[in-house]
Amino acid sequence: MSRAPRPPAAPDAEGFGGPRPVVAVVGPTGSGKSELAIQLAERLGGEAVNADAMQFYRGMDIGTAKLPLAERRGIPHHLLDFLSVREDTTVARFQDLARTAIADIQSRGKLPILVGGSGLYVRAAVDRLDFPGTNPAVRARLEDRLAADGMAALMARLAEVDPVSAARINDARRVVRALEVYELTGRPFSSFMPEREYVQPTVQIGLNGDRAELHRRIAARVDHMVAAGLAEEVAALVQEGLREGRTAGKALGYQQFLRVLDGRATVTAAAGETIVATRQFARRQLTWFRADPRVHWLDWDRPDLPDTAAALVCALPGGSPA
Rank of each mutant, 00 (worst) to 15 (best):
R123K: 13
A124L: 03
A124D: 01
A124C: 04
A124Y: 03
V126N: 03
V126G: 04
V126C: 09
L129H: 04
D130K: 14
D130C: 09
G133M: 12
T134F: 11
N135L: 04
N135R: 08
P136I: 02
P136H: 06
A137F: 06
A137Q: 11
V138F: 04
V138P: 00
R139G: 06
R139A: 13
R139P: 01
A140E: 14
A140P: 07
A140T: 10
R141S: 10
L142V: 02
E143A: 05
E143N: 09
D144W: 04
D144P: 00
R145A: 07
R145N: 04
L146A: 09
L146E: 07
L146M: 11
L146P: 04
A147G: 13
A147E: 13
A147K: 15
A148D: 14
A148K: 14
D149S: 14
D149E: 15
D149N: 11
D149R: 11
G150S: 09
A152I: 00
A152V: 05
A152P: 00
A153R: 10
L154S: 02
M155D: 02
M155C: 06
M155Y: 08
A156Q: 12
A156S: 12
A156Y: 04
R157C: 00
R157T: 08
A159L: 07
V164I: 15
V164P: 00
S165P: 07
S165Q: 05
R168F: 02
I169N: 01
I169M: 02
N170P: 00
N170E: 11
A172Q: 08
R173I: 06
R173G: 12
R173K: 15
R174K: 15
R174W: 07
V176G: 04
V176A: 04
V176M: 05
R177Y: 12
A178D: 08
A178L: 06
A178I: 02
L179S: 07
E180K: 07
E180V: 05
V181E: 05
Y182E: 07
Y182L: 07
E183W: 06
L184Q: 06
T185Q: 14
T185V: 13
G186F: 11
R187M: 15
R187N: 15
P188I: 12
